[in-house]
């Protein structure tokens, strides 16, 4: 088992958002987390990546049998977790290439490996850029600064390709993308799929799942996974919306 989440509870500013999440992800699998707005999808992604504004109030998360919640965000990244941000941050003054070089070498340092030299690094980065159709000229620009929405999301996938995480978490990667950008991003993700890696796709809409086909679909509502199924569940949600699930859950809760 790559990822095992047991009864995970988390809150922000005293408000409980995750109210007992249980989820297991094996290597090679793609899981989609869907749900209405405000259900806790992005919170789950953030808590797994280690965002410090969230307070974990209960439960545990094991990643390759290690207690993930004990690790700083950078250690989680080094262990193989990658969060593709819903809103990638613009960082003026730091070029994408320099940023990634630092990241790669920090992770290598964590693993006790020597840093890559400039030539090795450049060669690797060029290959990965090609893989996700990332324009070389963007690499020399300040990280995400002045990038279009599509370029930012592509940059996320490019970073993922370079860092080769075991578990990639895509947080609403489809938001703000037109269909062409969506297809390119999805192609990037699919290229990186492998039996050793797993992906969690957090999304509100089904359309991304036309391109990144999940093995499992989970519906998050009010901080819990209230329904799990296969890709057919996503199609059903697309057709019927979330109201029927909300009604079902609210009825049992009442």
């Amino acid at each position: 088992m790559m990822l095992k989440i047991n009864d995970l509870r988390a809150s922000i500013e005293g408000k409980e958002i995750l109210r007992g999440i249980n989820l297991e992800v094996k290597a090679g699998e793609v899981h989609a987390i869907m749900g209405p707005n405000g259900s806790g999808k992005s919170t789950l992604a953030s808590v797994l990546a280690g965002r410090e504004e969230y307070e974990v109030t209960g439960g545990e998360v094991l990643f390759d049998e290690k207690d993930l919640l004990d690790l700083a965000p950078e250690a989680r990244a080094a262990e193989g977790i990658f969060l593709a941000f819903q809103y990638p941050v613009e960082i003026p003054g730091v070029t994408t290439i320099n940023f990634l070089k630092t990241a790669v070498n920090e992770i290598r340092k964590y693993k006790g490996q020597p840093p890559l030299d400039a030539a090795q690094f450049l060669k690797m980065v060029r290959e990965k850029a090609k893989l996700v159709s990332m324009n070389d000229s963007l690499l020399k620009r300040a990280l995400n600064e002045g990038f279009s929405g599509g370029e930012k999301k592509r940059n996320e996938i490019f970073q993922m390709a370079v860092l080769e995480p075991k578990l990639a978490i895509l947080d609403e990667t489809d938001s703000g993308l037109d269909i062409d950008a969506l297809r390119i991003v999805a192609e990037g993700v699919n290229t990186l799929r492998s039996p050793e890696r797993a992906t969690i796709v957090v999304t509100h809409y089904q359309r991304l799942l036309d391109y990144i086909v999940p093995d499992y679909v989970h519906v998050l509502y009010k901080g819990r996974i209230v329904k799990s199924g296969t890709k057919e569940l996503a199609l059903e949600l697309e057709e019927k919306g979330y109201d029927w699930i909300k009604a079902e859950v609210d009825a049992t809760m009442a």
Binding site: A49, G50, R51, E52, A72, P73, E74, R76, A77, A78, F82, L83, F85, P88, V89, I91, P92, G93, V94, F99, L100, T102, A103, V104, E106, I107, Y110, A142, Q159, L163
Partner: peptide, 23 residues
Amino acid sequence: EALFYMRSRGISKPEALSLLMFA
């Protein structure tokens, strides 16, 4: 937010801080 973004890519907090401030 920028600090977290960098850390989520494996860059340690002190290194991220120094990169950000240098930038």
